[in-house]
């Protein structure tokens, strides 16, 4: 069962990664990336590394997303 979950999560990651590259709207890309980070954090929880998971959630998903959003607000939204 966990294996299935793992595969699902990892496929989700791949889909997110491809979608980020494909999508034209930068805001959407950033949000997809935030989702990617969160899923990555879950995956790390599965790998028994809660420290990394928390850090990724706070830094990767939180701070990075905020920074990306700030940058987009300063530049432009479309590609």
């Amino acid at each position: 069962m966990t294996e299935l979950l793992q595969y699902l999560l990892m496929l989700f990651l791949v889909v997110c990664a491809v979608a980020v590259a494909r999508i034209r709207d930068l805001l959407a890309a950033v949000i997809i990336f935030a989702a990617y980070s969160l899923v990555m954090a879950i995956l790390w929880l599965l790998l028994a590394s809660p420290d990394i998971a928390i850090t990724e959630a706070a830094l990767g998903a939180g701070v990075t997303t905020l920074l990306l959003l700030a940058a987009i607000s300063k530049t432009r939204r479309e590609e």
Partner: peptide
């Protein structure tokens, strides 16, 4: 427990933001 300076600091920072 899980966490530490980096994640905690980031959370505080994010809250301020």
């Amino acid at each position: 427990s899980p966490g530490g300076g980096f994640s905690g600091g980031a959370i505080i920072g994010a809250s301020m933001i």
